[in-house]
Design a protein around this nucleic acid. Sequence first.
DNA 1: ACGACTTTGTGAAGTAATGCACGAAGTCGG
DNA 2: CCGACTTCGTGCATTACTTCACAAAGTCGT
Lengths: 219, 219
Amino acid sequence: MAAASHPREIPEATVARLPVYLRALQDTAAQKLATISSERLAELAGVNAAKVRKDLSYFGSYGTRGVGYDVEYLILHIRRELGLTHDSPTVIVGMGNLGQALAKYGGFQDRGFVVAALVDTDSSKVGTAIGLQSIEHLDDLATIVSERDISIGVIATPAGSAQEVADRMVACGITSILNFAPTMISVDPGISVRKVDLAVELQILSFYNERRQSLDAAG
Amino acid sequence: MAAASHPREIPEATVARLPVYLRALQDTAAQKLATISSERLAELAGVNAAKVRKDLSYFGSYGTRGVGYDVEYLILHIRRELGLTHDSPTVIVGMGNLGQALAKYGGFQDRGFVVAALVDTDSSKVGTAIGLQSIEHLDDLATIVSERDISIGVIATPAGSAQEVADRMVACGITSILNFAPTMISVDPGISVRKVDLAVELQILSFYNERRQSLDAAG
DNA sequence: ACGACTTTGTGAAGTAATGCACGAAGTCGG
DNA sequence: CCGACTTCGTGCATTACTTCACAAAGTCGT
């Protein structure tokens, strides 16, 4: 195989859709359906059927023409592609409202992640527990990360601390960061960062809402 | 309606960056800087400078060559574009961990939104308070929405209830929905929906993490 | 075993977004 | 008032992504 040395290059947009497909497939499996067409999967995922087929084709042809895709088989493959064959330990830094909610949120555990540590700098919080997990101090991050083999860090601190926390995470060997703080963080290339900003999402909605109203008023 | 009466068509990608620029500008204003170059703004927002200039050019030329952009003026214009001149009342439906955290989260109030109502169906929650706001029943949504002039709804329910909640919201006249439930919801066109799925973000990170490790191992 | 039907996989066309590169418009020191 | 310098605004080439459309590959009833 020519492409053997490189893993085949998968478009970012496709990667971002894989988890969505995965969830749709898991729902489908729960309904005891053995196969699924690209059409149906597209509907569940809210995308176009051709896109589904092209996305899936990037990692081989798993479908059967005239039938569709084997649901379980596809789940397995996508899980493997996403590295969800084992649970990944994560650390959440910042135990404010959002951090606490994330710590309690069951949705991670279900989907391939374990919250392996909760961290803050506030000494009044350190030592207290959220659920079964107790809060530790940021200064102990290096030990925590290496002992529990953590590769993913979640930043749920205020904006002001985000960059410093990110730097510390990277120094400790964390390679993937999910940033909820409303600020850009810069890390060296080779570290993956994704940013989720709740207020930004609302503001985007607000833009279209405003537009709609001007159109309504005009039309 | 002819195209001329439309405000100029602004690319989606640009719209999604406006809130990020806005935040960067507000930080800049807080440092008492009167002007900012596209270069600097780009750095703060984590994008390319040409992109900043092109984005800003979609709603007119506010910059001064040789100097840059007037920070306050730009803040004003972006806020206006985003419809953030007044606070928009929002309702949060679903008072689980995430919903409660969102209710307490100060980040919305700061950025143009007011949490005007908290809603759930669980009768043991209805009537109790989170912060200053007390939880009301989903069945009263219509009244709540119309009396408080709410146009934005946040769904923080489990996946199974999301579609029904969305339908109810639309029926009550809500036109913008932010969906945290891990499922697609379908609404008629003309309603804006944005989806934030925390587990999906982690799974995307996991993909790149996995890739990196295979590359490291191979290289 | 065949023909009608379904559904995949993909080349190619179309669309959207990006980033370069440079002219235009301004500032500022002397 | 001029020339050096900064920075914007934008046309254009490039890249990334999407969607169409259809041949190929399979199923299924008879």
